[in-house]
Structure formats: C-alpha cells, structure tokens
Design a protein around this nucleic acid. Structure first.
Length: 803
RNA sequence: GCGGGCAUGGUGGAAUUGGCAGACACGCAGGAUUUAGGAUCCUGUGGAGUAUUCCGUGUGGGUUCAAGUCCCACUGCCCGCACCA
C-alpha cells in the first residue's frame, strides 16, 4: 500500500483537534514543561518556511516531553498589532481588524497543516480587547510606580512610516523596518524607564541558560561600563563634569570636548563669555540638522570648534586647557562632555592631530607620536605625578581615591541603554489609557474602565505634523478627568508593537481569566518558561523588553520569578536555494504550502530539521528534501518487511540502544540533524538484517514520532500497538547495551595505520598488544626495529612507536 | 576600527572533545526492474595510482606517540557593536 501523506495527515490533524490531544492539563500536581516559540506577526504574505524551523524544533521537544510523562504547555497566538497591517488597510480601504482576522485564519490553517502540537484552546491575540486590557493594565502600573513618564525629547522619526522609533529600531541611521531615512524631531513622548533595570538585566543573565551569543549581545547592548566622573573647574565659573573609564590618564588630558548640545554652551553664549559665538552657533546648527545617519556616516574626519574665552582647569595639576565642541561627543552618553587624552585614545588622537594639540604620553608602551596607545593591561604610568610607576590597573583606583578625597570626582557606572520610547503616532496599536487634565496633570484611567478600546476610524493616515490619527476624533479625545471630573483630553498615541509581546507568555498560562492578567496558581505552576526559542533579531528588542516587564511584574508581586525564560535558544535563518536571504524581489521564496502538498508535512518537518546545524543559517535545497521523503517511504514499507521474533534481535541490540540514546540526547542539544541521521542509520541496519521485528519497529516509530508525527501515528495504528502513539511512553535505553563486546581496532606504527584486528573490548592492554604484535603485517613492519613506546586506547587503537 | 565566530569531498554537513577524517543525506556513475522514466531497488563514489601505496580538513609554522580538534602567524568569509570616552 502506498504512502499517501495527504490522507494520513488530514486524518490525524482532524483527530488531534477533535480530541484535544495536545491540550495542557490544569492538574498542577504533574511535572510541567512550558515550551515557547515566538508568536508570529500574521502578515499578508502567509507563513514563511523560516517559521516552521523554530516551531518544529520545539514541537519535537514538546512531543518528546509528553511521551516522557510531562504536562506540556506548547501554545500559539498572534502578535497582530503593527504597521504593515495598518498600511495594507489604508491602501485597500479595509479595516485593520478585518485584515488581521483574514491573516490569522490563513496562518492558523497553515500551522495546523504542519501538525504542530499547539494547544489551540489557549490561542491569544494581542489585538483582542480582552487581551490588551492587561497590556494597558501593566502600563498603568508602570505609570503608578513612576516608570512611565512623558517627556519632550529629541526622537527618531521615520520619514517613511511617519512614526517615532525606539533607539533599537534605528539601524545605521535608517528605519529598521522600511529603510527610510530617520530624522530628529522634538516631540512629547511616553517613555519607559528600562534604564532603572539595567543592572539587573545584566546581572540576572548569569543564572540563565541562554545561548552565549544571546547573552553577550544583550550585555553589549546594555553596555555597562565602570568609570569615573571628574569635575573640571572652568574659567567661566561652572564646574564641567566629564565621564571617563581611564581616570589613570588624567595627567595626559590636554583639552576637553563638549557635545554641541551641552547646556553650558547656550549659557556661556548668553552671558557673552564666548568670543566666537557666531562660529559656535554655526557649528551647533549644522550638527542639529544632521540626521543620525549623516552623523555616523561622516565619522572619517573629525570636526569641531574651540570655545574661545573659556578654559578648563585640570584638577590634578591646575593647568588650563582649551575646550572644544564636536559632534564626536554624544550628548546622550555620560555627561555629554569628555576630557581628551590624545596619547591614549584613538578619537582624541585624531582630533589632536587635526587641531594641532599637544599629545602627552602618560602610559609607557607605545609611540604616541605615531598612534594612540590604548592598551590598559601592559603599560606603566609615566609623567603622572603620584601615579608614576604604577600599572594602569593600579592607577585607576588610586586616582579615584584621590579625586573622591579632594571632592573632585567619584566612581560612576554608565550604560549605553536608553529609556524606551513607548509612543507611536499610529492607529493600529493599544491606546495608551491616560488622560491629560489641566488641573491634575496625567491621570491613568481607573482599572475598571479598562480596556480602553480602539475607537472606530475611517482614515488611518497620520496627520501631516506626525500626530496620531486618533487626534482627529475630537469626541473621543474630549473626556472628563477620572480624578477631578473636570474637562480633560485623552492621550492619542498608541503603544509600540513590542508592548503586547512583552508579556504574552504569561497569558498562555491562564488565557481566559477576566479577573487578573494571570492567576497566582497558574503562574506558580507554569512559570517560568522552560525553553524559549526564537530569532536572533529579537535579542535586543523583544527579549530585552519582555525581561524588563517581567522584572517589573515581579517587583509588584504579579509573578513569582525574576526572569521569564529559563532557557533561550536561537535558530538560524533558512536561505533561498542560491544562498541569499529569501525575498520576493530575489525570486527565491519557497512556499510551505507547496512543500506540504507535494511531499507532506512530515517530510517538510523532517527536512527542516535535517537541513543543517539548527543554530546556523542554511540554504534550502529542493533536491535534499527528496532524501527525507525517501526515508519516510522506507519507514512506511518496513511494515511489509517484518521478521519473526518478540523482542530485539541480538544483532540489533547495540544499534537500537545507541540510537535511543543518541536521538534523546540530540533533541535536548539542538542537534536535530544528527538525531535524524542516527534514525536513518538504524533504518539501514534493519534493511541489512532483512527487516525489523515488531518490537524493533515499535521503537523506531516512537523515536521518529516527534519529528514525523502523522506517519508514525498511522503506522502505530496499522501495527496495532495499542492506543495512540501520542499517549505512549518514550523508550529507555540500557547503557550497558550501548557498546559492542568486540571491536575492530586500528594498529598504528609510528602513527600510521598498518593493520586492523578484532579484539574483545574488555581485554587487558598487555593482551591486546601481544595480539597486535603477532599480526603478520605488524610483525613484518617491526622487524629489526626497537620498540620505544606502546600505547593502547581502549576499543579504538594501538600505537607502537619504533625505530 | 573593536569584539565574536567559522573555514572539512562536486553539495548540505558528521567526527563520542586530542585517538581509524568524510557518519547521514544530496548529487554523480554503473547495474536491476520498467514500454518509458525526473519512480523504485542494488553497487560504487575524497584525490592520484595496476597496487598490500602515497597524499589529504583555507595557508605557513609549532606542541604531541597521535592534531580537523590545542598554540602562534597569515588569508578569506560571516555575525554583532559602531565616535558609548
């Protein structure tokens, strides 16, 4: 009988839905396992072949865990707010809600056609008011704790999307999403104080099982640095504070640089202290008009203007040094001003060379006339008063102690991380549940008035000045103050897409609760997520944001754990057949629907896991996929090649036990490709031994089930093994049966293989060496030579060193 | 520029962590079956050679009885950060 994948897959998928085979149980006494994959944004393009790579991987883990007796929660939902839907809606004059509904239906059908064992009873959707009620609720709590604040600020504004972007969404000065130019705008924005959690977001990574590249990327992004703030007196009177990580080099500071936006500059101009105010103003204006892109693009040549009329005073030696403004100093980091040590900082060195400023060597080890000597591990201090003779590592704390004692500075920790710009001037997002009252200021909506639902709107276009389209709905905007009852106005900005995804995993634990975001019982049982897999592109956005929100929820007692995810892994991209990223314009897109209909979901799943190292990018190959189909056919036709016997035949014993061990270990270690290879090898073994016994076949079906659930379930039924495979038990192996009693070992002479012999694995070294030397080829080779050394590696090889 | 990673057949990739390189699969070649095949099955397949031989894991050097694996230098790709003081 031929292997009819369409029929078999349809049959089992319907059965799984009908019988709720994979629904998580609410029995909180069972051992639990919560597997999570990033819920997709239901785009109009439908599922991409990249999605199933992640989903199948954790589906395999989930299915294995169920067979091992765990109560598994493997849920799915929709991260459905966002710009593409809104843009599509505008273009085609369809309401985003309708667009979302259609896209979700398509995605869901596609996911179900892959036989993923999601618990569909717990499906969530971020655009559902019963869901975003709690997103808004969290925002209100953040506001109440002072972690959400509104601030007039210079923001990144995407000229394409007409929307404010978070720092994380700006890549190389352009919009991460659409690639349009990003310009600066002054706007009043809701901000979230993620910086308050910066230390914890770094420190708590240590207790987690995160893929190393993930935790390093987060650490780099947060960018914690330990340094010193140093106060320089100025001839203008003000104290100019700078931040440095190299307090040891203070004696080498020959000038100072302020960012063009530094507040003192305006003050000094206003007070008439600058002799070249015109020149300074011109430079500041030019800097202000540059986009981030230009400011970073033009970083080859340093520019700047000296502030004529004000000098800084170096606190260690009282010397007066000039002050410049330059856009290589960032207003948003440290104090917005630096001390420049051209001898030991590359940027300062370039600047000093261009403006002909003195370069003083204070750390010995390089040639500061040729280039800056920046090494902080090898040098010794010179020309540095009380620091002379010390190493850099000794000099830093010594200088910090001195500065503190003199009241001229102190230790300071800085971060690259900035607060999270949380406002979006768009329609298709969660309304921010805040009301502005002239008397009371910003007032959150009372919790019993949540959710604040999105009002109906026909025209989703943002206003020309970049205000949210909601601002046009004056009836909706004008309201009363929940606090004093006076006239008030609603906030018209909405939340960014990252809001709903920052806590969604919690909702899966208790999706229908209308009293709380999640019940304490549910979160105590299910939390934290045991294994979370997702893309590297979410490391500094979604993953960081959700860790921040979770820590906040921990602080206010909603969740019992400090961290949301115990383990985080990341899959590589699936590239087009030509090795390039799949895209419509490159014409190398593979549609999962086509693969499922031609080869079946089981083949598709197997292939995506076999394609290569799970963590690395891999190109699609329409040839290789046939190999996976062939393998499944061989498994299918094994039902006609049953051999007599009850258990495992002695000849197959080692092979089977080893395969059970290998498949189990490889699933846990993200090595799906070698797990499949091991099963293929076992299949080859069966063929070489005339087929399989009932028991041998049963074990193969169990091992293969997490990868190819439909075909194995069908065969399980046909073979009458009893019940459904989904309710069976994962096989166990016997360590003692994983090794052969005898092995063929190699005999090397001076490291070159000269012969091979069969020996008992448990044989003594002396015994094996004797057998080896008795081998005719070896004996001939050793004739007339003196043996210098003899080695035996158990079960592997013998090496005889002879001259 | 700084930081991290990788480099293995025609291809995707294995290699129990220093112990028989190339598992498994694709592709290719030959054969069987077939009216036919881009279907299925068998056999072969790192290179050179008549060989019971030699060479072989980006390049050059080193450590070791033994190196794809460890160390040093170089080359080439990929990723992250990108004036963060």
């Amino acid at each position: 009988m031929r292997y009819n994948h369409s029929e078999i897959e349809k049959k089992w998928q319907e059965k799984w839905v009908k019988e709720k085979t994979f629904a998580a149980k609410s029995d909180y006494t069972l051992p639990k396992f919560f597997a999570l994959v990033e819920f997709p944004y239901p785009s109009g393009q439908g599922l991409h072949v990249g999605h199933p790579r992640s989903y199948t991987a954790l589906d395999i883990v989930s299915r294995k865990r169920r067979l091992e007796g765990y109560n598994v929660l493997y849920p799915m939902g929709w991260d459905a707010f966002g710009l593409p839907t809104e843009n599509f809606a505008m273009k085609n004059h369809i309401h985003p809600e309708v667009v979302t509904k259609n896209n979700v239906a398509r995605f869901k059908a596609q996911l179900q056609s892959l036989g993923l064992s999601f618990d569909w009873d717990r499906e969530i959707n971020t655009t559902d008011p019963s869901y975003y009620k709690w997103t808004q609720w969290i925002f209100v709590q953040l506001f109440k704790k002072g972690l959400a604040y509104k601030k007039e600020m210079n923001v990144n504004f995407c000229t394409g999307c007409k929307v404010v972007l978070a720092n994380e969404e700006v890549v190389n000065g352009v919009c991460e999403r659409c690639g349009s130019q990003v310009v600066h705008k002054n706007k009043s924005q809701w901000m979230l104080k993620i910086t308050e959690y910066a230390d914890r977001l770094v420190d708590d990574l240590d207790g987690l099982e995160y893929a190393e590249r993930v935790s390093t990327q987060q650490k780099n992004w947060i960018g914690r640095s330990y340094g010193t703030e140093v106060n320089f007196d100025t001839t203008a009177g003000e104290v100019l504070t700078v931040y440095t990580t190299r307090a040891d080099t203070l004696f080498g500071a020959t000038y100072m640089v302020m960012s063009p936006e530094h507040a003192y500059i305006q003050k000094w101009m206003d007070e008439g202290k600058l002799n070249n105010a015109d020149e300074v103003t011109a430079y500041r204006d030019a800097a202000a008009h540059k986009s981030d892109f230009e400011r970073t693009e033009l970083n080859k040549e340093k520019t700047g203007v000296r502030l004529d009329g004000v000098m800084g005073i170096n606190p260690v030696n009282g010397l007066e040094i000039p002050i410049f403004i330059s856009d290589y100093v960032l207003a948003s980091y440290g104090t917005g001003a630096i001390m420049a040590v051209p001898g030991h900082d590359t940027r300062d060195w370039e600047f000093a060379k261009k403006f002909n400023l003195p370069i003083i060597e204070v750390v010995k080890g390089g040639d500061v006339e040729k280039e800056a000597f920046v090494d902080c591990h090898t040098g010794v201090m010179v020309n540095s008063g009380f620091l002379t003779g010390k190493t850099v590592q000794e000099a830093i704390p010594a200088m910090q102690a001195w500065l503190t004692e003199q009241g001229k500075g102190q230790k300071k920790v800085n971060f690259k991380l900035r607060d999270w710009v949380f406002s979006r001037q768009r329609y298709w997002g969660e309304p921010i549940p805040m009301v502005w009252c002239d008397k009371c200021g910003w007032v959150p909506l009372p919790e019993d008035q949540l959710p604040l639902t999105l009002p109906e709107l026909k025209d989703f276009e943002p206003t020309t000045d970049g205000e949210s389209p909601l601002s046009r709905l004056t009836d909706w905007v004008n309201t009363t103050c929940p606090h004093c009852g006076g006239a008030a106005k609603r906030e018209t900005d909405t939340m960014p897409q990252w809001a709903g995804s920052s806590w969604y995993f919690l909702r899966y634990m208790d999706p229908h609760n209308d009293k709380a975001l999640v019940s304490p019982e549910a979160v105590n049982y299910w939390g934290p997520v045991d294994w979370y897999n997702g893309g590297m592109e979410h490391t500094t956005l979604h993953l960081l944001y959700s860790r921040f929100w979770h820590k906040f929820l921990y602080d206010i007692g909603v969740v019992p754990t400090k961290e949301p995810y115990a383990k985080r892994t990341s899959h590589g991209m699936i590239l087009g057949e030509n090795g390039e990223k799949m895209s419509k314009s490159r014409g190398n897109v593979v549609n999962p629907d086509d693969i499922v209909s031609e080869y079946g979901a089981d083949t598709m799943r197997l292939y995506e896991m076999f394609i290569g190292d799970f963590e690395k990018a891999a190109p699609w190959s329409s040839n290789s996929i046939r190999g996976c189909r062939r393998f499944l056919e061989r498994v299918w036709f094994l039902q006609d090649k049953l051999v007599d016997g009850d258990g495992i035949r002695p000849a197959l014993e080692v092979s089977i036990h080893k395969t059970i061990r290998k498949v189990g270990e490889d699933i846990e270690g993200l090595k799906y490709n070698t797990a499949i290879a091991a099963m293929m090898a076992l299949m080859n073994d069966f063929d070489q031994n005339g087929g399989a016994t009932r028991e041998e076949y049963r074990i193969l079906l169990l091992l293969l089930n997490p990868f190819a659930p439909h075909i194995t379930e069908e065969l399980w039924e046909k073979m009458n093994y009893g019940g459904q495979l989904a309710h069976a038990k994962w096989p166990v192996y016997d360590e003692a049966k994983c090794e052969n009693k005898t092995a063929e070992i190699a005999i090397q002479i001076n490291g070159k293989i000269r012969s091979r012999i069969q020996v008992s694995v448990d044989g003594e070294q002396a015994e094996i060496l004797a057998i080896a030397k008795a081998d005719p080829k070896v004996a001939a080779e050793l004739e007339g030579k003196t043996i210098i050394k003899e080695l035996y590696v158990k079960g592997k090889l013998v090496n005889i060193v002879a001259k």
